[in-house]
């Protein structure tokens, strides 16, 4: 029998930290965090061996609410900190919780290089297409034509597809799901946590106040339903053109392969160096 959600969340939330959290009503970040906590619970890891690292933004506020070793760094810099922690102390389980702006704009260079190193860090990106904390500016994933406070006439830049970006930069596990598909999201995060090497799970999420409201997407429930409607499993996309996929949310495991991991390789460097 599976443990009820409430019991799992209660186990990992920080009881010495005074709530409420900072997220708007109907925001999807809590759903993603809950999926992460359920996945962590299934790994059997102890709280003491887990380090949860974030940058700056709404999603990046998550670590303060949960009872691990938690690190809320500077904007875009979660991955460098996480890399330092993992490289210095490989037995630690290092998880990054970040958002689309934090991870793919200001932290974009760190993202591709963490992928390239294939260092054993799991990154969960909450992609809600918008800068929420600063009130709704365009992010590197905002779809073309959508409105933001810094693109009131519609976004003209192409969006990043974070999971595909990570895969092509060398991440050995990359997947995408949505807050509607919370159970699938949890299972992808679990796979990512148990994967040896750099893994990334992109969680498409709703930002009703900062994004949905400006783009006529209705209330949070309608936004989540929209995720369901737009989602298409990767298995059904083989014959689709880029244009056909443009407005869809391709879900599933984008990349999963085995490759040598950075801390393992560096352990080899140390061994060779020590013998010289």
């Amino acid at each position: 029998m599976t443990t009820p959600n409430r019991i799992i969340l209660d186990k990992y939330l920080r009881h010495n930290k005074k709530f409420p959290h900072i997220w708007c009503p109907g925001c999807g970040i809590g759903i993603v965090l809950a999926a992460l906590l359920r996945a962590i619970d299934r790994t059997g890891w102890t709280k003491d061996e887990i380090v949860l690292v974030s940058g700056i933004g709404c999603s990046s506020r998550a670590p303060v609410y949960v009872d691990f070793n938690t690190l809320h760094t500077a904007h875009g810099r979660a991955l460098p900190f996480a890399t330092g922690i993992k490289a210095a102390r490989p037995p630690l389980k290092v998880i990054v919780f970040t958002g689309d702006g934090d991870c793919a704009a200001i932290g974009g260079n760190h993202l591709i290089h963490a992928c390239r190193r294939n260092i054993d860090v799991t990154t969960v990106v909450v992609n809600n297409y918008i800068y929420g904390m600063t009130g709704g500016q365009q992010s590197p994933t905002t779809p073309e034509g959508m409105k933001a406070t810094t693109a009131t006439r519609g976004v003209i830049d192409q969006p990043f597809h974070i999971a595909e970006l990570a895969a092509s930069a060398g991440a050995t596990f990359a997947a995408r799901s949505t807050t509607y598909h919370a159970k699938e999201l949890e299972s992808f995060i679990l796979k990512a946590l148990e994967h040896k090497g750099f893994s990334l799970v992109e969680a498409i999420s709703q930002a009703p106040v900062c994004f949905g409201r400006r783009n006529g997407m209705g209330d949070p429930v309608e936004m989540v339903k929209r995720e369901k409607e737009l989602a298409i499993p990767i298995s059904k996309t083989a014959d689709m053109t880029f244009e056909e996929k443009r407005d869809k949310i391709v879900t599933g495991i984008i990349e999963e392969r085995e490759a040598k991991e950075w801390t393992d390789l560096y352990a080899g460097v140390k061994k060779t160096a020590g013998e010289e």
């Binding site: 380090v51 690292v53 690190l71 760094t73 500077a74 810099r77 991955l79 460098p80 900190f81 996480a82 890399t83 330092g84 922690i85 490289a87 210095a88 102390r89 630690l92 260079n109 760190h110 290089h113 560096y266 460097v269 140390k270 060779t272 160096a273 020590g274 010289e276």
Partner: peptide, 26 residues
Amino acid sequence: PERGGTFIQMEDEIASIGACLGASLA
């Protein structure tokens, strides 16, 4: 690495100091 320590070349200087702060926390 000869002394069991770790050297890592990062993608830029921001990442370098970030990794150092992370390692220190570890």
